[in-house]
Amino acid sequence: MVVKSRSQAAHQRLCISERALGHNVTFHPATCDVLTFDVSTCDVQTFRAMKPHYAKYLALGLFLALAVLPLLAGLGYVLAYSLGLVGFRSAGLTLVHWEAVLGSTFFWRTLAFSAYVAVMTIGLAVGAALWMVVTRPQAFLQGSLSLFIYFPLSIPAIVMAFFVFQMLSGGGLLSRIGYQLGLMEGLEQFPGLVNDTWGIGIITAHFLMAAPFFVILFANLYDNEKLAALVQLARTLGANPRQAAWRVAAPVLLQRAFAAIVLYGLFVMGAYEAPLLLGSQSQQMVSVLTIQKLQRFNLADIPQAYVISVAYAVLVLTLAVWLLGRGKRGDAR
């Protein structure tokens, strides 16, 4: 196809691209006005070459300034602070804060507890969502459930934590119902489900937020990947409904959603609001411990808070790269 170019700006761009890339453009020898331009020779690379570079650099600069620089500057600052190089009471390079944190059992217990909460939450939420979608896929793709399943996503973490507290605490709704049903004689008999050492309240709050998210994700993937046809094929080849659901549909869903599962897991690991309301003092999650150390009146705790921040950042980034790398290798296979 050959078209005539009219605007001055387009003429200039086409002249430049013609000169740079030698594409099929004819132009007036004196004025450099483009006479004709063969679109079939203009591929993606040509178009990229035609783009004004200053706009690209401006856009990428803005991205770096708002998405990357704060993170790097923040990490650099807290690393320097934790090493005693900057900040109030800095006394030159020292590893004393790092030794204090890394040598403390409480820090490692906090990390392990955060990982435990993330694994439990994701395990339960993914398991429940997978079961719901592979057994009743159409229920979440059409009809009223396909709308109402979105509702829990409109509840922020702090409100969900408050709701779970009002449900599961000693004076909560479940305890009251238990009393009215004659299952117990007082709130002291109700098991401690919030502010407990096992993080049951935290896991419940995150489960209630994560399960609908994964149901929506799996239902959309089920539809996009045309798994209904695959399940039908498996049934034709002799698989029973359970085998078709769990040995055909479920592995595909898990593999396609692997990155989202990993990222959600890391998000739960760094969660703050629910652990703040539903956690216990003896068993904290990493965000709560960091902020608590940062906001204490003891100034010696601030470098330790920063040590935890840096250590946590290194840990989650390593985990993310490792897990997502594994997922990619799995996809390739």
Partner: peptide, 19 residues
């Protein structure tokens, strides 16, 4: 790079930037 602030946890990012 765009995913990093989420992986990192916003509250920890805020702790790092508070200074």
């Amino acid at each position: 790079l765009a995913y990093l602030p989420y992986v990192f946890a916003p509250v920890i990012l805020a702790a790092c930037l508070q200074g």
